[in-house]
Design a protein around this nucleic acid. Structure first.
Lengths: 212, 212
DNA sequence: CATTGTGAACGGATTCACAGCC
DNA sequence: GGCTGTGAATCCGTTCACAATG
């Protein structure tokens, strides 16, 4: 059912809706309008309706959307309706932060293992999830049918770590490294470079200088 | 000189060029063409030329760009030509990761302090930078004319932390929290929600299921 | 003659405006 | 009456094609 050609921009907003809906449902709110969603998300109501309508007509005219139904539909579209097994490669502070957060707060994924090369920390665990040597990646990836890897190793090791990842059936890499990864066509890499983002932000901090 | 209306997309690419140029200069490469930049960055050569031409004509036709000159120009545009003082608010793993990275690897910013509310860690330091209670934020912000804050506190504390930040002259917030921040018009907030990004990525992991 | 700088064409995403429906 | 769903219009960023030029 998921339409592979769905605009990336739409896909990126879907989990936002899920989060809101989770909250609404927790508070026993059963119906929500695109206008209300707009107020909470900051997206325009039209955009929200377009996003949702892209995959079908999930609302009722004159009323709004049923929170539970809409949530279920979106989960299905993204593929969050069943837990996704993921791994974290690189157990520095960033890797630990992401591992912890996803283990505790993200009900839609299941962190099955954390990988590192530092013998000091291998064998340890984070919230019950084992830290393993990279050599065990194939075994784990196969056993849990892992499809997503979060990559947080030092930039110099990034490309090395990519090889075992893609050789074992993982086709999505969330790359938090500053390295530009070389991967085959069919591997989906999502780069978030926090250093670059911070540096570009400085642009908006210099505003006063000019006005003065 | 910086044009406040410059497209965000352009601004976000500028630091990428800086990084490449830093490398080139380290390797004594003095001239680079948009085509070469294209190969390293993955952006198209036309786009790179457009990005740069947006702020002026920095290249020489038939030859390319002088790496040092171009680097200097871009630093000036972004406002990286002099070090920017920043603070990190929230000393969890994510905050520590960002603090450490920027202290060691980012020559364009100067992390002047890290803030937290946990008495256990207040008084400690990260790579020589002190971890302080939030109560000292006004003092530090004033002394160092801090303009940028990286926000990595728990989502529930995010809005509380925003108040002291914006009350003390900081007008750019790099929000890594899942919270939607309420801020006055003139405050520039850049949200990066790693949970949402990860969840949206799952969409691309489910490809096989459909094809099978 | 290679490479920049740029107007024009293109395309994708957002906004508008309203028809359709409960 | 109110809110969804959607074609049309618009906006913005990227790509194209080429003129300008060292």
């Amino acid at each position: 059912m998921p339409d592979r050609d769905a605009p990336k921009s739409v896909i990126r907003r879907l989990p936002v809706y899920v989060r809101i809906l989770d909250n609404m449902i927790r508070n026993d709110i059963e119906i929500i309008s695109s206008r209300e969603l707009s107020e909470v998300t900051g997206f325009t109501a039209e955009q929200i309706r377009k996003d949702l309508a892209y995959f079908g007509a999930f609302g009722t005219r004159g009323t709004g959307y049923n929170t539970s139904v809409l949530r279920e539909k979106i989960l299905e579209i993204i593929g969050l309706n069943e837990q996704t097994n993921i791994i974290v490669v690189g157990s520095g502070h960033l890797g630990i932060a992401l591992a912890r957060h996803n283990i505790r707060k993200n009900p839609y994924v299941n962190v099955v293992a954390i990988f590192d090369i530092d013998p000091e920390i291998i064998g340890g665990e984070i919230l019950g999830v084992e830290i393993m040597p990279l050599s065990r990646l194939p075994e784990v990836a196969a056993e849990y049918r892992v499809k997503v890897a979060i990559l947080t190793v030092p930039a110099t090791h990034a490309q090395n770590a990519v090889e075992p990842i893609i050789k074992n059936g993982i086709n999505v890499i969330f790359n938090l490294t500053t390295a530009k990864l070389e991967v085959p066509e069919h591997i989906h890499v999502h780069n978030v470079d926090l250093s670059i983002e911070l540096q570009s932000l400085i642009y908006y901090a210099t505003q006063e200088k000019e006005e003065a």
